[in-house]
Design a protein around this nucleic acid. Structure first.
Lengths: 224, 224
DNA sequence: AGTCAATTTTAAGGATTTTATAAGGACGTT
DNA sequence: AACGTCCTTATAAAATCCTTAAAATTGACT
């Protein structure tokens, strides 16, 4: 679920924008008071849309407050068309600067473009069988809760999930994860599988199937 | 060295754009014949600037040809101001759509913004996990109190915080900070981590997580 | 349906690996 | 020479991994 925060003191405009973005399928929150927006709150969103001219605090000031601790794209919306204002906006770390009056179509196209780029960023993640693997963080997440897997447990899960639907014997898994020269009983794999299942059971998942007489495989279908 | 390719059949315009971007410190190549541009060539650049209306092949067609095999940002430059053309441009996977006549300042600002997002490098400061890094002064600050970190301690912290959420082995950290040719036991990293933790503990923070069997990572509070 | 053998699951303990901590020495700078 | 930083080493502590053996399950055969 992609979350967007729109900040504009003009409530009519705010509603217009929110409606347009919701039609694109995003979860959108509107905020008319910039003073209620701090960096901690912003970290929950995937994109911020910021009006520049607001009476209590302008968008530039708000952007300055939060930019350093916010990773997501920040887009300015403004009637100020002078070049200096635009350059100032980008200088503050903005990712786009949309001039009013803008068409709803353009707004949606630009928002889509920035979110798409985020996606393309190599954050090496995949979701299989309800479990999201973050390969950089070596972390498995189900919904909002992280599943604390040990190194081996994570490695086995990731390997199985990566090749979802394919069956592996215990020996194959042992070799794939610990190397061909590793010594030790492949039966240790069974122990890890048990622990993984136990941890995933706490969130109501059981994506690892036993293929009797052969080995294990990760469910291919996205069973929820 | 950041490399940009500009494609425009109008040689006068081409030169103008190239000059402007070279002044921003980039290495810029201009190309007036879109037929000489293929996906292999494009993979060498960090950003592409594409004119839409060209006689032999228009920018949209060119973009379609290369988009799938090119990861870098693609920016359209065009006099076509109709909304449908703009939406079509974004639909093809463009990252920006700059309407002519544009100011040189705006062009540079937009190019800078897209490139900055690519390397994710904040230029001056960032706040991660409650710690603010002043990258010019090489100083870490929590709230109002400066944390006195040694050179190595600061370097490790900054590196981890910049890539918050990502796990690094001791070897990776050692190499990233002291260079691939540095000699010495990576276990020294553990010593530094201990000291950093000790200093951050005095202000009630502990942003460095141990990933058992793998390495260390800076906490990422960003929900996703 | 019932029985048996093979296979998998589960459980628990000890062995192993990895990390945290502390102390000492090397190095360079002031 | 004094100081701070960095690196190494040794030890203690923690967590994980592996092994073993018993219990449960599965599939096949009578």
């Amino acid at each position: 679920m992609i979350k967007i925060l729109v900040i504009d003191d003009d409530c009519q405009m705010l509603e217009l924008i929110c409606d347009a973005l919701e039609q694109s399928g995003y979860y959108v929150e509107g905020e008319s008071n910039p003073l209620l927006v701090d960096s901690k709150r912003c970290q929950q969103y995937d994109l911020l849309l910021l009006d520049v001219m607001m009476p209590v605090e302008d968008g530039f000031s708000l952007c300055t407050r939060i930019r350093d601790s916010v990773d997501c794209p920040i887009l300015f919306l403004t009637a100020k068309t002078e070049e200096t204002a635009l350059i100032k906006g980008f200088g503050l770390g903005a990712d786009d600067y949309i001039k009013k009056p803008f068409s709803i179509g353009e707004l949606r196209a630009r928002v889509n473009a920035h979110l798409r780029r985020e996606d393309r960023q190599p954050n090496h993640a995949m979701t299989r069988g309800g479990v999201r693997f973050n390969m950089h963080a070596k972390e498995a997440v189900v919904g909002e809760t992280a599943i604390l897997l040990t190194k081996s447990e994570y490695a086995i899960s990731e390997y199985l999930a990566l090749h979802a639907g394919q069956v592996f014997t215990k020996d194959q898994l042992y070799e794939a994860i610990f190397g061909y020269d590793a010594e030790g009983e492949p039966s240790a794999i069974a122990e890890h599988i048990k622990n993984i299942r136990g941890k995933l059971k706490t969130v109501g998942l059981n994506p690892i199937e036993t293929v009797w007489g052969v080995g294990y495989k990760w469910q291919k279908e996205n069973a929820r």
